[in-house]
Design a protein around this nucleic acid. Sequence first.
DNA 1: TTTTTGACGTCGC
DNA 2: CGCGACGCCAAAA
Length: 132
Amino acid sequence: MPRKGRTDRSRSAETRVPDGIPRQQGFFEDVFDIVRQVPAGRVTTYGAIAACLGSRLSARMVGWAMNASHHAIPEVPAQRVVNRNGMLSGKHHFPPDRPMETLLRMEGVDVADDRVVDFKSRFWDPGQELAL
DNA sequence: TTTTTGACGTCGC
DNA sequence: CGCGACGCCAAAA
């Protein structure tokens, strides 16, 4: 199909549907989709998601995508995504009314000192689960 | 359009 | 064992 004169990059402004709902923007969708598949009470890491996407993407992109997760639909449980240390690195980015730590505790994940307790057990590998 | 940043990860010193 | 620098790709300014 013939590509219009504009570049693919500039579709950002056009990716918005008339309803006002921002459509998932490429790479973001992949990240959101994986995060949404993370079961409650479980956590995953940026690197795991990045690896699941093909390792070609850096873990940074995952974090960057999560930044957009706030306006993503449906809501993305970003609280279940932590760094490889199990630290709630993004808690500072959560709404004050709903701290990341609180959300995790609510799901049954014990958090102490901004770290997931027994992170290893709580870890949910998207690459392994989604490989089915 | 180019430049900077970004909720990380891994290698190096 | 602790701290520093680089890399990765994409989006926002």
